[in-house]
Structures are given as C-alpha cells and as structure tokens.
C-alpha cells in the first residue's frame, strides 16, 4: 500500500494538471528504507511530450547525488498520462527500475476528475496497490 500525505498528493496532481497536455514527472523522496514519501521533487520532462517522459540525464545525476547526501531514496516515482488511463504502459514497465518504489500514475484525460493510482513494478510484473491519503 502507498501511504501519502494529502499535501503531496495534491502537489502531484497540480503538477500533472499544470503540464497537461504534456506528461509531467517527478519523484517523492523519503528516508532510505522508511517507505514514507516526504519530499516532493517535481522534475522537468526533458522530452516535453504528450506521450513520453524522461528525466534529463544531468538532472538525474544531480537528483541522485542529492538523495545520496540526504540518505534518501525515491519512494514514489510519478508521471502523468494525458490521454489514456492511469495504468503503466509497456514503455513504463520496460523502464521501471526502482524495485522499492511506488510507481504513481496520474491521468489528466478528464478535465473534472483526476485518476491517481499506484503500482509496484518488479521484473516486469505490475501489481496495483491501494493508496491511502493521510
């Protein structure tokens, strides 16, 4: 299960809405091993695309240095789908490589409501999990 503060949940949704129709992406960091997402870190989608996202390679290195220095890890890795459901695509699955992360998908395809779902993706196997907003 993903347990996430309301404030961070709202920030993820706001980021996805702001970048619509392009995909938005980022992480929520937390102390290593804690499984508690506490620090919202929006990232630039270097692809600036409605169907693809990627962290810029220099941004990625800077992010991991910062996480290392803080003894943090990416507890949540999030991105949005802007025209399809909030479910990991084949591309998402092939890239997913943080075995401890909750992969959050947000869909902004509906203007009035936002889908927010969380998944574990390990060795290509997707498992949806409940989301508890604190």
């Amino acid at each position: 299960m993903l347990r996430i503060d309301r404030e961070i949940y709202d920030e993820i949704v706001a980021h996805a809405r702001r970048d619509h129709p392009d995909e938005a992406c980022g992480i929520v960091a937390g102390s290593e091993g804690s499984d508690r997402p506490t620090r919202f870190v929006p990232m630039l989608n270097a692809a600036r695309s409605p169907t693809f996202y990627e962290f810029d390679s220099a941004d990625l290195l800077a992010l991991y240095k910062e996480l290392d220095a803080n003894e943090e890890e990416p507890v949540v890795v999030y991105h949005s789908h802007t025209a399809t459901e909030a479910y990991p695509s084949r591309t998402d699955i092939s890239y997913a490589s943080e075995p401890n992360a909750h992969y959050v998908l947000v869909s902004t395809r509906e203007e009035q409501s936002t889908e927010f779902r969380s998944f574990r993706i390990v060795d290509g196997v997707v498992t949806e999990e409940p989301v508890e907003i604190l």
């Binding site: 409605p50 693809f52 996202y53 991991y64 890795v77 789908h81 695509s89 591309t91 998402d92 490589s97």
Partner: peptide, 12 residues
C-alpha cells in the same frame, strides 16, 4: 563512474 537507471516512460 556512476551508473543510474534512466527514469523514463510514456503512454505508448
């Protein structure tokens, strides 16, 4: 040398 997994994906 630092090895990092790329963070990427998309709706297709």
């Amino acid at each position: 040398v630092t090895i990092l997994p790329a963070v990427a994906g998309g709706s297709r």
